[in-house]
Amino acid sequence: MAFHSLVGFLHMGGYAFYVWLAYGIAMLSIVILVVNTLMETHKIKRFVKKRMLRDKRIQKAQKMEGAL
């Protein structure tokens, strides 16, 4: 262990601001990228689902029209 206490760890030998800034921004940008990727997947799937439902509705309507 390089540090004796939690405070010492957070203090980073006087470089706390720079070290945690670097780690923080890196973390943040990684999280943003992952969330963006996952949201995109979700959005695509929802879009495809919606389109399928719409296609089904259209088909149904056409059938009804045919029956009338």
């Binding site: 262990m1 390089a2 760890f9 980073m12 030998g13 470089y15 070290v19 670097a22 780690y23």
Partner: peptide, 21 residues
Amino acid sequence: GLLFAPPDYQQGDSFRIIYIH
């Protein structure tokens, strides 16, 4: 890298940025 690696003799603990940089 953050807890167990010893601090650098010149740069102290600031060198720990190396682990992401």
